[in-house]
Computed example of a mutant assay.
Amino acid sequence: MTTFAPEFTGWSKTARLFREITITEKLDGTNAGLHVSEDGQVVAQSRNRIITPDADNYGFARWAADHADELAHILGPGLHFGEWWGSGIQRRYGLTDRPAGRDRHEVDRRFSLFNVDRWYREDEVVESMRSRADQSLLVDAVDAVPVLYRGVFSEDAITEAMTDLRTGGSYAAPGFMNPEGICVYHSQSRTVYKITLDNNDAGKWEAAA
């Protein structure tokens, strides 16, 4: 009989709960990403596939192709994940198509980046994003998801963030009173958790208040 000799597999180090978290507004659009090469080429993707203007996802690939040079300049090389949201996508956030000339309309959609550690400091957009945009109007459509809290893990902070959204509406789209919820990034476990204001999580965070 062959001797059973498995390879040793250790238990991974357990992350400590009371470490820094970042709470951001969870936007209800469609997951998107931009691959930017060292020489400035830009390729778009959805949650599940590479997309093109001919095989698109809510116009994200077309938008990326139309603004490829500016996006490469603003974002720099790498893979940049975010949410593509606005007119005609999921909650829409009160954004609608805008007149852009005779018989034409401009679709009001925005790309909000998830990597707030790069794009935010003290809850403000890093000035390098705007300075690198060189006065381009594109920067109005590229931002980062709003930061609601950064600090040590706290159930009170989570509850407060949810309450603020429920009573004050979206931070990303001021005046829109039906936001989706929050994302909580735990720095030590490097994991993102979501809590929504809909029936999936209703009562759970309110009970903790």
Rank of each mutant, 00 (worst) to 15 (best):
164 D>T: 12
63 W>Q: 08
118 R>I: 05
108 D>I: 09
107 V>K: 09
35 H>F: 08
71 L>E: 04
32 A>D: 10
99 P>D: 02
102 R>Y: 12
115 N>R: 06
119 W>N: 00
60 F>V: 02
105 H>R: 10
63 W>G: 13
187 S>K: 04
168 G>N: 13
138 L>Q: 05
77 P>N: 04
170 S>Q: 06
161 A>I: 01
205 W>P: 01
111 F>C: 05
186 H>P: 11
156 D>V: 09
148 L>I: 06
82 G>W: 12
77 P>G: 07
178 N>L: 08
113 L>I: 04
16 R>G: 09
191 T>H: 10
14 T>D: 00
197 L>D: 08
49 R>E: 12
154 S>E: 15
192 V>M: 12
188 Q>M: 15
140 D>Q: 14
117 D>P: 00
133 A>N: 07
10 G>K: 04
135 Q>T: 09
21 I>A: 02
76 G>D: 05
3 T>R: 04
58 Y>A: 04
164 D>I: 07
127 E>T: 12
208 A>G: 01
152 V>C: 12
208 A>N: 14
147 V>N: 09
73 H>E: 04
182 I>F: 01
141 A>F: 05
69 D>W: 00
18 F>M: 01
26 K>N: 15
155 E>T: 03
81 F>Q: 13
6 P>A: 06
123 D>G: 04
13 K>R: 14
20 E>C: 02
201 D>K: 00
18 F>A: 01
105 H>L: 08
131 S>K: 07
30 T>W: 15
142 V>H: 06
177 M>K: 04
167 T>F: 02
85 W>E: 10
182 I>T: 05
110 R>D: 03
57 N>M: 04
135 Q>D: 14
174 P>N: 05
65 A>H: 11
44 A>Q: 15
99 P>C: 01
197 L>G: 15
167 T>C: 07
26 K>W: 13
69 D>Y: 02
129 M>P: 06
165 L>D: 00
69 D>K: 09
192 V>T: 05
29 G>I: 03
121 R>E: 09
95 L>I: 01
207 A>D: 14
67 H>F: 13
126 V>E: 13
117 D>K: 02
206 E>A: 10
68 A>L: 05
115 N>V: 11
152 V>M: 13
67 H>V: 03
119 W>L: 02
141 A>D: 10
73 H>T: 13
57 N>H: 03
179 P>V: 06
116 V>Q: 14
118 R>G: 00
174 P>D: 03
26 K>R: 04
21 I>F: 09
168 G>C: 07
74 I>W: 03
27 L>A: 08
